[in-house]
Design a binder for these strands. Structure first.
Lengths: 143, 143
DNA sequence: TAGATTTAAGATAAAATTATCTTAAAATCT
DNA sequence: AGATTTTAAGATAATTTTATCTTAAATCTA
């Protein structure tokens, strides 16, 4: 559905939103350790978010990453888009180049609805998610 | 979402349901050529369906594959299950081993609903799909 | 029976994803 | 200034998925 790279990145971004508080930058090492992720793999993936303009980074002691865009404006779908692309949400599930309402594959109608729902599921801002978590709307939450 | 192997296999199985008529076996070569798939890759994948008891096969001229189970009893989810497994439909989208109602990840509730819907989307028999196609309920269909 | 056809099985390789390491560059700290 | 910390960039390798080929086994046809 989404790659490991996208999963890790989503978790990292939620972590940043939750724990940045008034810090300038959060080190990738801290994120990787806390979330039990590979520092190497996470570094590469977060770099993609930096290049996509979602995060900014800073080198040296006190360095790390943080949001460049306001987390209100960053949606999970933006993370997935920067890491995996959006092909999954836009294309035929049986792999046909030209699959549409007028020229459908055998399950076009069903999948067309579901892929929209999936897109909508990820069309939620990191800020909103972080707020839900902070407010305790979700108990025993884990990132 | 599902692998290329699963996509190809679903298309092949629909093809068999549509075009087997009263033939004993349909050759993999015919299927691959008609659906524009790799004969090699398709052979390997259909063999998995044979081993899963969904199809049966026969060697030699007049050989090929055909349903072992009644296509009424074969659902798309069974194809996906035999090729990809059902992990996608059962597991946390952020990759947590123990993600549940009482111990949820940040998007557990949303994903729990969507993955059920996805499962249900594939919980349709090949016979039913083939009938929908034959009856013309779906126009300009392509397999 | 000999040759042709078709799936079975396993070897090999190409491509994509994930994982790890090394070196460089930028910033900080002493 | 020199050592340390941290991201950047690129090299390398492991794993998984996809793709292709070869040989074997089963079956049919002539």
């Amino acid at each position: 559905m989404i790659t490991e790279a996208a999963k890790d990145s989503i978790r990292a971004v939620i972590y940043i939103a939750l724990y940045r508080e008034d810090r300038e930058f959060i080190s990738i090492k801290e994120i990787a350790q806390t979330l039990n992720l590979s520092f190497y793999f996470l570094s590469k993936n977060l770099l993609k978010l930096v290049k996509a303009g979602i995060l900014e980074s800073f080198r040296g002691p006190k360095g790390g990453v943080n949001f460049k865009k306001d987390p209100k404006e960053v949606k999970l779908i933006d993370i997935i888009s920067a890491i995996d692309g959006t092909h999954v949400f836009e294309s035929c599930i049986l792999g046909f180049k030209e699959c549409s309402e007028t020229n459908p594959c055998a399950i076009h109608n069903k999948w067309a609805e579901e892929r929209k729902r999936l897109y909508d599921m990820f069309d939620i801002s990191v800020k909103k998610l972080a707020d839900e978590i902070k407010s305790g709307d979700i108990k025993n939450i884990k990132i």
